[in-house]
Design a protein around this nucleic acid. Structure first.
Length: 583
RNA sequence: CGGGAUGUGGCUCAGUCUGGUAGAGCGCUGCGUUCGGGACGCAGAGACCGGAGGUUCAAAUCCUCUCAUCCCGACCA
């Protein structure tokens, strides 16, 4: 397929819109791929849509190869289904709700577990119909509290979501594995540098999950990965297990006593005031957890991980206590809470504090702390759990090598759901023995529109986008520097047809523009291959080829162009870490 | 929902402090010259200064309210 530049609706901008902050948003807007309509909602222009469709195409191929079948579920969903699983109440404000003319309640689908489970429970009755994996590429709507980062965190976005139904755990595990493998193939084919990591399963629920992260410094998520060559451990920071190096037991210390620490609220201030390292301080953080007062303790030099706290308490809502609550529970302003004599419902501490002695903690009164705190001796009714976030250099929970932290953008997520939805919605079948059993589910998402943004976050330079050949709207841009030279234009036309014959999508820049303008536009738009045909080149029988990613330029002979180009093209694909283009 | 910022031709911005009736660059239209890395000259078109109310002889500018967008935080595939 080819397109003439003069007819392409791709309004490029010399300057990025004021509101664009992240690189991908700036460049997508400048290159004429997308326009923002309102906060978190974008229009896809022809180039953007072509890229989106290229990604979706690869996703479809690999999903189909893995045995999944495509469907299209409604975006508007009735409240009844959501009430059945309890998510009408739990999903919160992110679920955009509205009423129709008959005053019935509906929502815009942020995800489709309810709808798919409803479909399948009506149609699947026998073990013979399982396993089943259905997927769709759909527009989702999530009324994010704060959409941001352009296409990275939208309210309206394109997602591929798949749902598997199996007769038992073993089957569900096989489906999960199959999707995990399909995702690995998909992201490889897309030419992205990515990593699969263990993840918290969040509000979707379920027993275990992996996220697929595109590695980019601008990512919102932090990944903890093992640095050992032989170990594959990698996890989202929310999930990464901390290895507890226990303090030596029975070291003993003097009696608990109170000391004045005027104005020392933070760990740093207390450490400076008393001349102790932060690791000898017990940081006491107060939370309102489902309405209960909770104190969570971690070492002063550690960061509390709220997700871990939430999971440790099997809670649904965790929020930091307000200053008023802190005053009420600890009897002191923020900064002076400590585990001794604290009026809270639940006291949890990180494993690391289990045998700690000689610690410093808040005294639960203004401007005072206690010293010589022995956790085992002085703190009663405390539970221990993994509460802290791992830090760079911490030990890998698998192999005890050092961990490293990197940033990533979540572009895919596979969950093993288990029985959560099938039980709530009674999705059951009869097995060989005529016994009724509940289906075991999994769900698998890919952020299709987010992939475009993440590809750019990962690949761009001062001149514009650089897109992998599998994502770019056109694999090649052919620039004809014709001027008044009709021969150049005619030869370029022939070349477009030849390239199409080789299976390429070509953007043919036949505009009567100055060369500089055409070069700038081509670089900005990021097509992986640029071909430049000019009058002088035509005389000499050559055409210039440039790889957008590496900047490499080569002259290819017009005589025998096909073979020369095929070799050049293969080199471009290799530069992207991709296997040679199939037809 | 807290904190911060910004709304002025299509785009990026100046003008606001110190009120006097709107500017620049880019883009756009026409003509001419130019033509391998966002050319140049000449001539044009294009703005109820986010909205409402108020103060004033006079408001883009001062006051009040409001809407929108962006950033940080809380939150979230």
């Amino acid at each position: 397929m080819s397109m003439r530049f003069s007819r392409l609706y791709a309004p490029t901008l010399k300057e990025a819109p004021r509101d664009a902050e992240v690189v991908s948003h700036k460049l997508l807007a400048r290159a004429g791929y997308v326009r923002q309509l309102t906060s978190g909602i974008y229009t896809f222009l022809p180039l953007g849509l072509r890229a989106l469709n290229k990604v979706a195409g690869i996703v479809r191929e690999e999903m189909n190869r893995a045995g999944a079948q495509e469907v299209l579920l409604p975006m508007v969903q009735p409240a009844e289904l959501w009430k059945e699983t309890g998510r009408w109440e739990f999903y919160g404000k992110e679920l955009l709700r509205f009423r129709d003319r008959k005053d019935s309640e509906f929502c815009l689908g942020p995800t489709h577990e309810e709808v798919i489970t409803d479909l399948v429970r009506h149609e699947v009755r026998s073990y013979r119909q399982l396993p089943l994996n259905l997927y769709q590429v759909q527009t989702k709507f999530r009324d994010e509290i704060r959409p941001r980062f352009g296409l990275m965190r939208c309210r309206e976005f394109t997602m591929k979501d798949a749902y598997s139904f199996d007769r038992d755990e073993a089957g569900a595990d096989a489906s999960y594995r199959s999707m995990y493998d399909a995702y690995t193939r998909i992201f490889r084919r897309l030419g992205l540098r990515f990593k699969a990591v263990e993840a918290d399963s969040g509000s979707i629920g379920g027993s275990f999950s992996h996220e697929f992260m595109v590695l980019a410094d601008t990512g919102e998520d932090t990944i903890a990965a093992c640095t050992s060559e032989s170990c594959e451990y990698a996890a989202n920071l929310e999930k990464a297990e901390a290895v507890c190096v226990m303090a030596e037991c029975g070291e003993g210390c003097g009696a608990l006593s109170r000391v004045a620490t005027p104005g020392a609220h933070t760990v740093e201030e207390v450490a400076a005031c008393l001349g102790v390292p932060a690791s000898k301080i017990v940081k006491t953080l107060l939370f309102d957890v489902d309405g209960k007062a909770v104190a969570a303790l971690v070492r002063g030099d550690r960061e509390l991980n709220e997700i871990k706290l939430k999971n440790a308490l099997a809670a649904t809502d965790v929020r930091l206590a307000t200053p008023e609550q802190v005053q009420q529970w600890s009897g002191a302003p923020v900064g002076f809470a400590g585990p001794v004599g604290l009026a809270v419902d639940v006291l949890v501490a990180d494993h690391e504090l289990c045998n700690a002695t000689g610690m410093v903690a808040g005294a639960n009164e203004a401007d005072a702390h206690v010293v010589n705190l022995d956790m085992a001796r002085d703190v009663k009714a405390v539970r221990f759990a993994d509460l802290r976030s791992v830090a760079s250099g911490d030990l890998c929970p698998r192999c005890r090598t050092a961990l490293t932290l990197t940033k990533g953008i979540e572009v895919g997520h596979v969950f093993k759901l288990g029985l959560k939805y099938s039980e709530a919605m009674k999705a059951a079948f009869l097995d060989e023995d005529g016994k009724e059993r509940t289906m075991v589910m999994g769900c698998y998402g890919i952020g299709v529109s987010r992939i475009i943004a993440s590809a750019i976050e990962q690949n761009h330079d001062a001149d514009g986008l650089m897109l992998p050949p599998t994502i770019a709207p056109f694999e090649a841009a052919l620039i004809a520097l014709a001027g008044k030279d009709a021969a150049v234009l005619a030869r370029a036309e022939d070349m477009v047809r030849e390239l199409e014959g080789m299976g390429l999508d070509v953007l043919f820049d036949e505009r009567d523009e100055r060369p500089g303008v055409k070069f700038k536009d081509a670089d900005l738009m990021g097509m992986p291959i640029q071909l430049v045909l000019g009058g002088k080149g035509l005389e000499r029988g050559v055409i210039e080829a440039k790889c957008r990613k590496t900047g490499t330029r080569t002259e290819l002979p017009l005589d025998g162009f096909g073979d020369a180009f095929a070799a050049f093209r293969a080199g471009v694909w290799r530069a992207w870490g991709l296997e040679s283009p199939g037809r």
